[in-house]
Amino acid sequence: MEKLYQIFIANDAWITICKGIGVTVEISLVSLLAGTLLGALICFFRMGKSRLLRLLATGYIALVRGCPVLMLLMLLFYGVLAQSGLSSVVVAIMAFSFHTAAHVAELLRSAIQATDYGQVEAARTLGFSRVQTFRLVTLPQMVQIARPVYQSTIVNLIQWTSVVGYVTITDLTRVIYNTASRTMQPMITMLGGMAIYIVMSYCVYGVFAWLEWRERREVEE
């Protein structure tokens, strides 16, 4: 217990760990929002009628999904945007947004394709506009289908952010590394870090489980 106290609590170590968690959450949340919006746009292009946009979207997805996020991050921070004056956090958010967008685009496309097209045709026959058909028929089903994979994407995103130490950001992983070096107890420190990441992941699963439970209750009522 004394060892755990020395590693994780003593001399304000817990505050430093909390700050690290804050950085991880900040990068993950903003990247998720931006990545989801960008992903939806790419999915729209990927499934659209314009051949050029379809080609560009397919190329983007293939390129970004096939590239390790650390390489993308390093390339942006130390290469393409090195002289841009953008802060490391902004560049990290951009890299993770681009990466998440590629995954979200494919996830949305597969969810849309999994919905019954006959229902869309039926809605259109009944006089629904295209927007109404999407909002009232496709979207609710798409959300149901995409939800499990989307929550995995969020958890993956939280884990991907653990490489931001390479671009001068002190996130949770970096704090854990520093603590392990300082205390020379890497095994215990890494286990502690792992536990924090697991708790963060289960918070995400918890939110989705709660949303599902709430929806079920509404249907039952």
Partner: peptide, 11 residues
């Protein structure tokens, strides 16, 4: 690389 290069508990 402590004690040459380290980060203290307060960051």
């Amino acid at each position: 690389l402590p004690p040459i290069d380290l980060v203290l508990a307060d960051g």
